[in-house]
């Protein structure tokens, strides 16, 4: 059973890379898992990577007790509004950010440990009809929210104690922003995707909207996951949850697109499609460096090398049923795959 899960089921090629099972954690009190993530946590003079699991009404922090064993450290109970997602804050220690709401995000909260009071607590950062949120390096949070009349984009700088230090308004594009990604290595640059299938660029320091660029209408509702600038081009990793299968390239899951921000022109660099012979399509996914992972409608998790456009491993649905969540750990190289019943398995 275990061996079967470790071998990637690729019908058409060598199994050069595979997923190696590391450990499992199971929360028997979790009725329905909604998200999983990792967070850096400093305690007793050392900093370690911990796992965070979320159900609709609670968020739990797990610490490694032994190489293959996890223990729950604390559970924050959030019973008034359901938890929708965990929002990773890169490079941030001892703070978990969560989005709560009914159909869409209504508030964003920080969950943290206060050494002053020796207690776990949570604090409210933002409320509204929030369409998209992303955590950036240096404890910054960007969100888009919508009123009847207008769209508001805001960056909040967070203090170590979970307060908001500073707020910067960003100029909104005409279309609703659906996702954000920081431009790696450029602290003041942010990109976003829009409901009109454009990629937009902001200057976070000034709030200026610098450029709006068409992605092309072949792949509607693109979601940006990662962006970096190289040799004067802006490379953006997009996923395509609503893309239709085509004869020439199958069902696309991720695409790397190169934009020239000066001219707004773009060209596709690489496609990552569902592995051949696998029915279904992309449901949701995560990107870390050049690795993409996604849950498919078949209940499997697939992993790709995004620069080679190659599916490198598949986790078929196991005895516990369909996979529901696929996330990369903050360190990369570790995949967290989760079932709805609260079981999370870590693979290297």
């Amino acid at each position: 059973d275990v061996v079967e899960q470790l071998i990637p089921l690729l019908p058409d090629g060598p199994r050069e890379e595979s997923l190696q099972f590391v450990s499992e954690l199971k929360d028997p009190s979790c009725p329905c898992a909604v998200d999983v993530s990792t967070v850096w946590w400093a305690a007793a003079g050392r900093r370690e990577l911990r796992v965070v699991t979320a159900s609709e009404s609670s968020v739990s922090l797990w610490e490694p007790l032994a190489p293959d064993c996890w223990g729950k450290v604390h559970t924050w109970h959030l019973r008034e509004i359901p938890v929708i997602q965990i929002v990773p804050l890169p490079d941030t220690c001892n703070i978990v950010c969560v989005a709560l709401g009914e159909l869409e995000i209504g508030e964003i909260r920080l969950l943290l440990y206060s050494s002053e009071t020796d207690s776990f607590k949570h604090s409210l950062v933002k409320t509204g009809n929030i369409k998209a949120v992303v955590g950036l390096k240096d404890r910054r949070l960007v969100s888009s929210s919508r009123t009847m009349q207008e769209q508001q984009l805001e960056m909040v700088s967070l203090s170590e104690t979970g307060g908001s230090k500073d707020r910067q308004t960003l100029m909104p594009p005409e279309e609703t922003v659906t996702a954000f990604a920081e431009v790696e290595g450029m602290r003041e640059a942010l990109v976003g995707t829009t409901a009109g299938n454009s990629v937009v660029i902001w200057n976070l320091k000034t709030g200026q909207l610098l450029r709006k660029m068409d992605v092309g209408y072949s792949y509607p509702a693109s979601i940006c996951h990662r962006a970096y600038s190289d040799s004067g081009l802006l490379f953006v990793v997009l996923s395509h949850p609503h893309a239709k299968e085509s004869e020439s390239c199958g069902s696309p899951a991720f695409r790397v697109v190169a934009f020239n921000p000066r001219t707004g022109r773009s060209t596709g660099v690489m496609f990552s499609c569902l592995p051949p012979g696998r029915a279904g399509r992309y449901l949701e996914g995560d990107v870390w460096d050049t690795a993409g992972a996604a849950v498919l409608t078949s209940g499997a998790v697939a992993v790709w090398d995004l620069l080679q456009g190659r599916c490198t491993a598949v986790l078929p649905p196991g005895p516990a049923g369909h996979w529901a969540l696929a996330r990369w750990a903050a360190t990369g190289a570790v995949l967290l795959a989760g079932h709805r019943n609260g079981t999370v398995r870590l693979y290297r």
């Binding site: 200026q208 921000p261 060209t267």
Partner: peptide, 23 residues
């Protein structure tokens, strides 16, 4: 991808676009 497909490329695109965009 070639420069002819994407147009002239600038290594300082972020600074240039920030200088040109409305404040």
């Amino acid at each position: 991808c070639s420069e002819s497909d994407l147009g002239p490329i600038s290594l300082n695109w972020f600074e240039e676009l920030s200088a040109e965009a409305p404040p």
